[in-house]
Structures are given as C-alpha cells and as structure tokens.
Design a protein around this nucleic acid. Sequence first.
DNA 1: GTCTATACTGCGATAGAC
DNA 2: GTCTATCGCAGTATAGAC
Lengths: 226, 226
Amino acid sequence: MARRQTRFSAQDMVDDPRLKDESPSLWGDDYGGVAAGLLSSAVTCFAGIGFNATTTRDISAGVGLSPAAMYVHFASKELVLFEIARIGHERALAFIESPEVEQAADSTARLRTIVARFVAWHARHHACGRVCQYELSALSAEHYEAVTELRRAINGVFRDAVRRGVQDGSFADVDVDRVVRGMLSLGIDLVRWYRLDGPDSPEQIGEFYADLALSMVARGSAVTSA
Amino acid sequence: MARRQTRFSAQDMVDDPRLKDESPSLWGDDYGGVAAGLLSSAVTCFAGIGFNATTTRDISAGVGLSPAAMYVHFASKELVLFEIARIGHERALAFIESPEVEQAADSTARLRTIVARFVAWHARHHACGRVCQYELSALSAEHYEAVTELRRAINGVFRDAVRRGVQDGSFADVDVDRVVRGMLSLGIDLVRWYRLDGPDSPEQIGEFYADLALSMVARGSAVTSA
DNA sequence: GTCTATACTGCGATAGAC
DNA sequence: GTCTATCGCAGTATAGAC
C-alpha cells in the first residue's frame, strides 16, 4: 500500500488559508532572504502535517527551490525545526516581558496585560505556535533542553504575576500552579483551531481570555484553593 | 546523517511513566486480546513520538511480537490510528452523555457535570487523548471525516448545555461559541501535560475546571458578551 | 548558491513456512 | 496466528557541475 495516503500533502498546506499566519515577520533579527522563506515554508508544512510527514523537498518547494537548496542554509531538517521553536519561544517570551507589562499600575493590570499579549501573540502566530507546542518531540536532546529552558521562563512570568497578586491581596488565595496551568492552556490550545480570517482578531481574543484569566483569580470566586 | 537522532525512541515511550494512562480499559467493547494490546502499544508510541515517527515494528514490539504480527489484526498502520481515534472519541462522547448528565437538577448542575466528566475522561486517558487531538492529520480523508462527525457531536453537547442555561436565565448572556471554545480548551490542553502520578486525580482536576467553566458563564462576571 | 543526480538507509507491507 | 525474510519505495543528505 502507498506510503502516504493521508488527507493532505505539504503542498495542500501551503495553499490552505487556515494556516495563514504572520510567521514571515518573526525571523527578521535572525534570518533574512531565502533562509527566512525556508523557515516560513517549514512552519506551514510542520503546522499542517507535522515535522515527520514533511519532507525536505516540501520545505524547499515551498519557496520554489530544488530539494538540495535547504542544506545550503540549514545543516539538517531537525535544525530547521529547532530554529523555528527557538525563535518562536524567544519572541513569545519577549512579547510578555514588554515595557507595557512593566509599567502596569497594579497586579490586576499586570496579569491582564500578560495574558492578553500571550494570547494575541499565539493567535497572530498560530502556525508557528503549533510547531512550538506539538512538534518538540522531534528535537534532539540538546535542542529540546534549550527550548525547555525558554518554556520555564515563560511559565515563570505567569507564575510571578499570579503570586504577586495573591501576596498583595489583589487576588484570591488561589492554587497558583493550577491556575497558571489553566491560563496557559487557554492561550496555547487556541493554536489548534484559531484562524486569522475568523471572527476574532488576535487582540480581541486576547482581551476575552484576559477577562477569563482575571475571573480565575477574582476574590469571591468559587475557585479559591481548599 | 542518521534518519532518527531524536530525543526518544518508541521504546523509551513504552518505558516512560509519564505516558502511563488507562487506555487498556478502552477497547473492551471492540477489541480484546492481542488486538487490544496492539492498540494500547500504539497509543503509547503515537502519544510519545507521534504517528509518523512510530514504526509498525515499534507497535508490534510493544506487545512482544514480530514486525509482521500487526497486520494479522489491522490492515494498515493508518487503520490502527483510526480505530484509536474513533474509539477514543466515541468513549469521550458517551461519557458526557451519561444518565448522570441527563438527571442534572438544573442548567448549572448540568454544565458542571458535563465539564467535570469531559475533563476527568481526558485526564484518565490523556495518552489516548493526545492521539485524538494531535494526530488526526495522518488520517485518510474518509477516516478524518468520520472523526470530525464525532467531534461535532461532542461540541454540540457543550453548546447545548451553555445555550440552555443562557436561555433559562441561569447563565449570563455570554457569547456561546467563544465560551465553549474556552471550556473545551481547558479540557483538551491538559492531555499535553497531565500525568496520572501528579498531584491531582482525574476527578479533582475535573471539579477544578468545572468551577472555572461556571465562572465563565456566571451572572455578574466581566465576561458577558458585548 | 542553485541545480541534477544519486548514495544510503529505513520503513510499510507481503510471501510463505510452521 | 506467529514467525523470518524480503520487496519496493520514499526520504535525508551529499557530490559535483554550473
């Protein structure tokens, strides 16, 4: 039987408007020109059919080049995945460590801004986000560890924001770890279904989920720790 | 360079306590004996390293059989994936359509029960849940459509429960689609990180998320529709 | 830096003995 | 129903011309 009789090929993914995202704007500080195009092509393919189902030919074909072209810019397919995951996590982390967060008036405004920006980033870059969330098992041990370090930093931003609000009395005495898990889940799971051509803009869904996050830590809520 | 220099092999997944789940109890009505063992082995491998990175040899080796053994019970690797996805979705749907849900006293109790059971099911069967959520792109077009049908039914249970509460005045006038997305995200994303040997039992995390879900539709919440 | 051509490997699936 | 052996092919990566 044929090796690949799956629903979609990588080329279908490139043509699918559901996978349109704004990853091309992500590589600027690290890559430009052909290399940036290869990363964007790989994001679309990886997000659509997965790292292991994507061939190096698919990635090159996405920018109109021959099968061998990818290796001039990246030493291996795994390195393409790592660069996507590394840059994606770095950008998301930077986006929730912005001055706008530092200047928040109080713990509530601070948490609201962090959640809204985290969610909006993942909506705008949802294809890159899918790769960052669901394809990490294909990384080498060293690269996986490097990404895990960045993920710990992102979790730390949320944990600090919630803990600070609990300590200064802005929030109820919630179970910080549980609540942070829930907030991250809202922001992360949307990469599975979000589309830029859907009803909500990235900023709108960010605001909506920021409200949900605040309701999770609100005083008088049913969700205080036991 | 080697084809697979990834972090983990399928055998590592079989040995990893993080992927312990209770999928062996899922196949009873459809498969028994060796076939059930193959499905459970496949769940562990697919959940750990993905459908495309798992070989038919891995699946068979998980139950101590030779590479060819799988084909006596399943016509193809893709069919193994489909059976896991089909049965997983059927069981999850049945679990939130239980008599316990039908007998709920009011809209609030009804939604609480649905969310708690949905979340608890995904926690208990989190490895199967990962396959059901993240590996569907490897299905054939026909099999994908069959699973999509089941997913629509599951979404419908949530949508009806929220809509009913809005209509009878138990809930605030929320944006039903948005709120249902959020509830499903909480229940689905946990398959990415949940472990049975962690601090929360499936039922405990189900109760916790049911509280969150109710706070999303509570009257007087900040999250009413515009 | 891009191409064509290809070496090498590993996987899905099958054949045929027991 | 399980085994061993193997076929055929797809996919990563490289060689070498331009």
